[in-house]
């Protein structure tokens, strides 16, 4: 269930591609994922004007990168399909974990339901942006957004972590291949240990296994105070013996950032690079 929780978090901010139909002119767009909320905003004035609803959590700083960005006049909708249908959207961006009954209801109401799925890394993000842009009738804006992302990626990409192994450990799960963290770590030059063990997605792993891997870098989500989380982890029984703890390379990152699915993924890479340089100038 921990994994489901992580997925939930990843999902509170996400979306994925599907072959696009013809982009409808001047659609009424409803967005029920934070990821599409953010992407729709980033697509510019024309697209924003078509949005009739954004997700309920869009102003929640714990999950959303665009708090208080959408005007208050745009309704915030939660899972209730009824409220959503009342807004008479023509397109709805929902997530793969959205309630299937609700989704079916939307489809029966002649709403073009776009299911966003795949939150595994940079490529998934690019594909999602393209899908959303196409459905919003602004494919060229989507391409521009992806280009912006790639440019930013070039800037943060570093070899700071070369030769070092890393594990991201949150609530008993490690981020293996096909996760945002795998790409973030790779961009920082790090080797993501769980990926090298053939694991995929978020995998539950015991502390014993974690210690036995002896990672050089350990990434954890901050609890209340990031510095305290790092200190606490460094003295945890077992963890204390890992190279990560002994070389001051336990890195705590804000959960909202660590589990980001949009452009803020690059902030994780930047944070990793910065910390690696500090620890080993």
């Amino acid at each position: 269930m921990t994994r489901a929780g992580l997925l939930l978090l990843a999902c509170l901010a996400a979306g994925c591609p599907r072959p696009a139909a013809e982009p409808p002119a001047a659609a009424r767009i409803a967005s029920v994922t934070i990821d599409s909320d953010a992407t729709l905003w980033a697509l510019g004035e024309d697209v924003r004007g078509q949005v009739v609803a954004v997700s309920a959590l869009v102003d929640d700083a714990r999950y959303s990168p665009i708090v208080d960005t959408w005007p208050a006049s745009i309704p915030r909708v939660s899972g209730s399909s009824e409220t959503l249908i009342a807004l008479r959207p023509t397109v709805a961006f929902v997530a793969e974990w959205s309630d299937p009954n609700g989704r079916a209801l939307l489809e029966r109401s002649d709403i073009d339901v776009v299911v966003l799925s795949g939150f595994g890394g940079f490529d998934d993000y690019r594909a999602r942006v393209r899908t959303i842009a196409e459905r919003a009738g602004a494919p060229e804006r989507g391409r521009a957004l992806v280009a912006e992302f790639d440019e930013a990626l070039d800037q943060v990409t570093s070899s700071a972590g070369a030769g070092l192994s890393v594990v991201s450990y949150a609530s008993g799960n490690v981020a293996a291949a096909d996760t945002t963290f795998a790409d973030e770590a790779a961009a920082a030059g790090l080797t993501n240990l769980p990926s090298t063990k053939g694991m995929k997605g978020h995998v539950q792993v015991g502390i014993e296994q974690l210690v036995a891997w002896a990672p050089d870098v350990l990434v954890v989500p901050c609890e209340d105070d990031c510095a305290k989380t790092e200190r606490d982890f460094a003295t945890k029984p077992g963890i204390a013996a890992t190279p990560a703890a002994q070389h001051d390379r336990i890195i705590a990152i804000e959960p909202a950032l660590l589990f980001a699915t949009g452009p803020r993924m690059l902030d994780v890479t930047a944070a990793l690079v910065r910390r690696l340089r500090e620890a080993d100038p």
Partner: peptide
Amino acid sequence: TALQRALVWDLRLPR
């Protein structure tokens, strides 16, 4: 090694 001690003494034995 520190790692062996950590595995046996800090993790496995108390668990």
